[in-house]
Amino acid sequence: MRSELSGFLAGLSWPRPQGPQFDPETAPTDPVALFERWLRDAVAADVPAPHVMTLATVDVAGRPDARVTLLEDVDEQAFWVAASETSPKGKQLGRVPVAALVFHWPQLGRQVRVRGSVRAADEARTADAFERLSAHARAEALVDRQSLPLHDEQWLSDALGDPADLIALEQPGASSAPAWRLWGVDAGRMEFFQAAADGHHVRLRYSRSQDGYATELLRP
């Protein structure tokens, strides 16, 4: 079985990049501006769910975790993700406030990596993001049992019920799912990777300093 899987994996390859290539000489001084440009390129290229990313965290014992999640927001300082404070993801973000993100757009041969410290959003920003969620996502946040063992599927179905019923219990204009929160991953260190069909890949790293951002090219 293992040898068959090894042979199967050996037959796989990276997709050939399609679409715009990247000249680091034309990169903006702000990495978030470059991220926005690349995200828009991914949307224009019909990359499925280009706002999906891998979020890596560590627990208090230093053991890593990673999962695929959604980018909720981005600004000049941070990339924002959502997690309940009671979930494993939220506990790790709160107790060991460092994280890494990876965006991968294989059709374009592009990756973006972000690594930095983590901070919780204030109540106003969290409430605003909560109200933008779909009805089903808000209902799940109100039940707040993410990652707990599911022993009784009927209980969960009954608890969720009609999302409109749960949402009707919220206080107007504010989130009544107090454990649900936005977390910001600092954008002080970012790396942009552009694959090339000829193997001459480009890696550009941004590091924030007191004078703005310093950039350097890295070996692929």
Rank of each mutant, 00 (worst) to 15 (best):
P48A: 13
Q146A: 12
T26I: 03
G188Y: 01
A196I: 05
P64L: 13
G62I: 08
P20S: 02
E191L: 06
G116Q: 06
E25W: 02
F79W: 15
L133E: 12
L204A: 06
L93D: 03
L133H: 14
A141L: 10
Y213L: 01
D41M: 02
L166P: 07
I167D: 03
G62W: 03
D65H: 04
E191K: 05
T215V: 12
P17A: 11
L93G: 01
L148F: 02
L182F: 10
P20G: 00
R16Y: 05
W14G: 09
V68P: 03
R95D: 04
L148P: 00
P31Q: 14
S87K: 12
K89L: 11
L204D: 04
E25D: 13
D122F: 00
D65G: 14
S134M: 09
A45M: 09
V68M: 14
Y213E: 00
S147E: 03
V114K: 02
T57G: 00
G188H: 01
F103Q: 08
P50C: 08
R63Q: 12
A137Y: 10
E4W: 08
A66C: 13
L9G: 00
D46N: 06
S3L: 13
I167R: 07
D211F: 04
D65L: 03
S175D: 01
V112E: 01
S134A: 08
F8L: 13
G94A: 15
S207A: 14
L39I: 04
S6K: 13
A195R: 11
V112W: 00
A42D: 01
L204F: 08
